[in-house]
């Protein structure tokens, strides 16, 4: 009986989202009076013993190069075997693209109940109940898992990463790995940009910017904040900005610490993609824009005047701290 946390890696480095889910798994193990252990698939350059600082006692590694690439079929088999080998009763993923691909498949293999999109520690006082977001962030559901093994996929930015002291014991796990039935013919990573789902701060633009040629004010602000950049659906559909920047119900769903919306009215479908942001700032010249109702801070004004001033003020703040 232990909590096994899948610590996802990319290009040899443990992902930032994994630190969050390691902290979550460690807190859950403590709550259940058991130990937290991590599972890493593939070969890595990072020092895995250092994951101990997030509260795991052991790191199990299946150091097989085939696993450097995510194939849900192979991953599910290997992770399920790791659960059996370690005797884990709770398996935790981060609800990233990889987590979405792999967690449910692994759960089905283990015949384990799963809650994806979890947003808090489970209530283990009487059974095992997990709170998750539903209706695209407009509500929560409390879901009870009844199977002996439980699987959780944790929403990004929903648990505080806690880094302390500690070193984990790294254990090699020998699991047979099949050949992948999927052949990858191209990988196109967007370089030089902060990936949207990992960004702490996101600056987003809507039709209020009036055209792609006006994006400079937004990009300057994003650069000063080391922020990811996003846009509303009409902007993506008009090809003012690339499709992968579209956040909303049918685009990317994000939950940054700070979301700054420039010239976006805040239609319900847009809110569905950003309503889990911790702090929302809206700058819009229309005081009736529905987004102000969902915002924490707002400025009613012309964004072309306000945003350059905002960038300047943030520069001053950065210079003074």
């Amino acid at each position: 009986m232990s909590v096994l946390i899948f610590a996802d890696q990319t290009e040899g480095h443990i992902k930032k989202a994994s630190f969050e889910v390691l902290s979550y798994g460690a807190a859950l193990a403590k709550q259940m009076g058991t130990s937290a252990e991590a599972l890493v698939l593939g070969t890595v350059t990072d020092d895995l013993a250092a994951l101990g600082k997030y509260g795991v006692a052991k790191v199990h590694q299946v150091a097989n190069e085939t696993l450097n690439h995510v194939d849900a079929q192979l991953y599910a088999k290997v992770i399920a075997e790791a659960v059996t080998a370690t005797g884990a009763t709770v398996l935790v993923f981060s609800h990233t693209q990889t987590g979405k691909a792999v967690s449910a498949r692994t759960a089905a293999r283990l015949k384990a109940g799963i809650v994806t999109g979890a947003c808090a520690l489970p209530d283990t006082s009487n059974g095992f109940t997990v709170k998750k977001t539903v209706f695209s962030g407009k509500a929560f559901a409390n879901i009870s898992i009844s199977s002996p093994i439980k699987v959780i996929s944790l929403n990004l930015n929903s648990f505080k990463t806690v880094a302390g002291e500690g070193t984990a014991e790294v254990v090699a796990l020998n699991v047979a790995v099949d050949a992948s039935k999927i052949k990858i013919t191209a990988i196109n990573k967007i370089v030089g940009e902060v990936p949207l789902t990992e960004a702490d701060i996101v600056v987003s633009g809507g039709r209020g910017l009036k055209g792609p040629e006006n994006w400079g004010v937004l990009l300057d602000l994003a650069k000063e904040l080391h922020a990811g950049t996003a846009c509303s659906r009409p902007v993506g559909d008009a090809h003012w900005r690339p499709h992968h920047e579209h956040v909303g119900q049918t685009g990317v769903q994000i939950a940054p610490n700070l979301y700054i919306a420039l010239g976006i009215s805040g239609a319900i479908q847009h809110l569905a993609g950003v309503n889990r942001s911790k702090v929302i700032v809206v700058i819009n010249k229309d005081p009736e824009a529905p987004f102000f109702k969902a915002a924490d801070y707002g400025i009613v004004g012309d964004l072309f005047e306000v945003v350059p001033k905002l960038t300047e003020e943030i520069k001053k703040l950065h210079a003074s701290t």
Partner: peptide
């Protein structure tokens, strides 16, 4: 066999309401 069941739903707590800052005082927003 069903492995999970929904016990209850909740709505998120209402936002405290937007704090509006004057466009002439952007420093206050920062």
């Amino acid at each position: 066999d069903a492995l999970t069941s929904i016990l209850s739903f909740e709505l998120p707590p209402a936002k405290a309401g937007v704090k509006l800052v004057s466009p002439d005082n952007v420093a206050e927003l920062v």
